[in-house]
Write a protein that binds this DNA or RNA. Structure first.
Length: 724
DNA sequence: GCGACATTGTTTTTT
DNA sequence: ACAATGTCGC
């Protein structure tokens, strides 16, 4: 057997890890050290050298994208399809197990998945049902509590209440929520994992079967596992299945949603005969970028420690730009990208990374003004849009009439005269008789429990859904979806609104039909599920990243979180100010501050060749002007690696209006559309940024901070400034 | 029951 | 600032 294609592209450390004979293997892989490559080649090694069938391999990732990439690369390396191999996200794999064993798991065959939004809405209803007012019991809080308990593997009855009334109330909420899910056949994300864990714990023969089947388990991004995922893995691996985990403590950025970095530290204790490998050679970035990353992360106290190095050269210094305000910063980004493109580079090789989504707006405006195409990642994805979810709710009801969450969503959409009063009556009825809303409605109609008009409306809704189910039963999937959109009245509903946004919603509905048409049903993966159920699960589990959007050469805009796992020749890290990054919510707590620092580390290590950092001295945040000092993280970079690309002037932070109040509107705009922060070109002084302006049009003066000459006041009528 | 105004709370995100 | 809710009058 020629193993050279598997091992020869690897360096010594990677090769040692991939050929490890230890029972458990933990690979601490720094950013850009070939993490995915090690996983892919390990699978190839197992198949070709140790002679395992792909059928007996289980590989777990956190995102669908990572799962797809892994499967693709394994197939490429092995030169054959790896159909039998289970590769997927924790949730995707758990879902698959639950579909295969719904009976043993105690679920209805048609169980539906709740996404985070569905879950919150359902919890809201449960809170109402318990007569708790929303002010003291916010749904978000309850959601956080419930998911937290599930991720600890705890059911309501297992949660210990220390006699504290708030805790007891939460336990009540948790119980009521569980009952609501059970009645309606609904499963939230955390439930997928918890239910699977319990399924395997409670059914020795099933556990035994899967333990025999999965002779080897691989896990990506191990630092992001939560307690339940860790438990799930231990259970599935048992004593006999070797486990191969890859992770990086310095890239743990999801602590706030339950990820436990400790899992990485406990690995060698909990999985027997463990061998540890470190990958520290980086193949991505220049020496400068790595030194900056190392310098920054060394400020974190709680780490095992690791230092990246590269055989590559030093490369460019890191450029630091002190913007006057957020508009100036955005313009700097646009200018930089324009310059980069002018030099013959691709715009898509540039990523602009920010801490929070709200920051994308100014950037987008500046890019539009400069006619630079861009693409924003994140935000709400296709299957999360309200109109799409509405349509899917109808479809879900045709598949499972008892899906209360979907029932509530569309029972009066478009409005058909079923109001809050009627609905409240229905809920009471359902509660009293322990029925789903659908059944309760059927009985209410039979018994004429409500006023004539309401009863008629309810009967109309029941008929509508039954009719939709009837009519679509034997249609192909996309025609089912199309039929439902048409005959539920949703299309007409959005058509009536007639504004620009409604147009977009209609397009999304069309796109949903397309998505249904394009959905490929894989009997091997979906087992005995119907095509429709498989599509609905797909919509819930894969929010629909790649939908739409052509492949134009676009600058990439995204949050630091969504940049994890990606790399770009040029990275611009914007908004590096105290309070923004590190975020205000995290500054006081050392643990969270360290996570912010890791987030910064992730951002820096995305860059291959060029790294630019900027901050704004003034920024409008939630309506008010803020003067945040530069981020402490800037100061933590080795000074020698950073150059300021515009010398900061003593005058660079002029005091704003409190000292010299101006007439409303004046002071913002010096006629000519020159606003504070506008970049201008002067024939003699070169380029600069408008800092201030005063007076009215004939004698207006502006203060400009020139790159070469410093700060000057100019009379607008004579200066002949050009915007640039 | 429904549309027009006030109030509210604002990290990060995948599944 | 601003979107996403909740309350009020018809």
């Amino acid at each position: 057997m020629d193993v050279s294609p598997i091992l020869s592209p690897l360096n010594d450390a990677q090769r040692a890890a991939d050929a490890s004979m230890a029972h458990s293997t933990l690979v601490l892989a720094g950013a850009g050290s070939g993490k995915t490559r090690v996983l892919v080649h390990r699978i190839a090694w197992l198949c070709q050298v140790e002679g395992l069938s792909p059928y007996s391999i289980l590989a777990v990732t956190f995102t669908n994208k990572a799962a797809r990439e892994m499967r693709g690369r394994v197939e490429e390396l092995l030169q054959m399809p790896a159909d039998g191999m289970w590769v997927g996200t924790f949730h995707g794999l758990a879902h698959r197990l639950l579909r295969a064993h719904w009976r043993e798991a105690g679920l209805p065959q048609t169980f539906q998945i709740l996404d985070a939004d569905d879950q919150r809405r359902l919890i809201k209803r449960v809170l109402k049902g318990l007569d708790l007012d929303e002010a003291s019991w916010p749904a978000r809080q309850a959601q956080w509590y419930i998911n937290g308990r599930k991720e600890e593997g705890l059911r309501p009855e297992a949660v210990g209440d220390q006699g504290d009334p708030v805790g007891q109330q939460y336990i009540r909420i948790y119980s009521a929520y569980e009952a609501a899910c059970r009645r309606a056949g609904l499963v939230d994300f955390a439930e997928l994992l918890l239910r699977t864990t319990e399924l395997l714990q409670g059914h020795a023969e099933l556990l035994d079967h899967y333990r025999r089947r999965f002779r080897h388990i691989l896990v990506d991004e191990f630092q992001d596992t939560n307690a339940l995922q860790y438990q799930w893995l231990r259970l599935l691996a048992g004593e006999q299945s070797p486990i191969f985990a890859v992770g990086d403590e310095d890239q743990s950025i999801y602590g706030w949603r339950g990820a436990r970095l400790e899992n990485l530290h406990h690995f060698s204790r909990d999985f027997r005969d463990c061998e540890l490998f470190r990958l520290e050679q980086n193949y991505r970035s220049t020496g400068t970028i790595l030194s900056a990353a190392n310098g920054l992360i060394s400020n974190n106290q709680t780490r095992m420690g690791k230092s990246l190095w590269t055989a590559d050269g030093e490369g460019d210094p890191i450029r630091l730009y002190a913007a006057y305000n957020e508009q100036d910063e955005a313009r700097f980004v646009a200018d930089t990208v324009a310059q980069w493109a002018r030099e013959g580079n691709r715009r898509s090789d540039v990523a602009v990374l920010y801490r929070s989504n709200a920051q994308s707006r100014v950037l987008e405006e500046a890019l539009i003004a400069a006619a630079i195409p861009y693409r924003v990642y994140g935000g709400l994805r296709f299957f999360e849009r309200a109109e799409v979810k509405d349509a899917l709710a109808y479809v879900r009801l045709t598949a499972n009439r008892h899906d209360d969450a979907s029932f509530e969503r569309v029972v009066n959409l478009p409005t058909r005269g079923i109001g809050e009063r009627t609905l409240a009556g229905l809920r009471v009825l359902a509660q009293e008789r322990d029925l789903t809303l659908w059944t309760a409605t059927t009985q209410a109609v039979d018994e004429q429990a409500f006023a004539g008009r309401a009863t008629k409306a309810l009967a109309g809704f029941l008929e509508l859904v039954d009719g939709l189910a009837q009519a679509t039963r034997s249609l192909p999937l996309h025609e089912q979806v199309e039929h439902v959109i048409e005959h539920s009245g949703l299309r007409a509903h959005h058509g009536r609104e007639g504004d620009e946004k409604a147009q977009g919603r209609l397009e999304n509905l069309d796109e949903l039909v397309n998505a249904a048409r394009a959905f490929n049903f894989d009997p091997q993966q979906h087992g005995e599920m119907s095509r429709l159920d498989a599509f609905l699960a797909h919509a819930a589990l894969e929010a629909g990243e790649g939908q739409g959007d052509s492949w134009e050469d676009c600058v990439q805009l995204m949050t630091l979180h969504s940049a994890k796992g990606l790399e770009f020749p040029m990275v611009i890290l914007v908004g590096m100010e105290e309070g923004l990054f590190p975020h205000n919510m995290s500054i006081a707590d050392p643990t969270r501050l360290e996570e912010e620092r890791r987030l910064c580390y992730v951002g820096i290590t995305r860059a291959r060749r060029h790294l630019l950092i900027s901050y704004a001295e003034t920024r409008r945040q939630r309506g008010a002007e803020h003067y945040n000092p530069p981020s402490r993280f800037i100061g933590e970079l080795p000074e020698a690696l950073v150059v300021s690309i515009r010398p900061r002037l003593a005058m660079s932070r002029p005091m704003a209006s409190p000292v010299a109040p101006r007439r409303a509107g004046a002071g913002r705009d010096a006629g000519d559309g020159l606003q504070i922060g506008t970049r201008v070109l002067h024939a003699g002084f070169g380029e600069g940024v408008v800092l201030d302006c005063e007076g009215d049009v004939p004698s207006a003066r502006v203060q400009v901070n020139f790159e070469r000459e410093g700060c000057k006041w100019l009379v607008l009528g004579y200066a002949n400034l050009q915007r640039c």
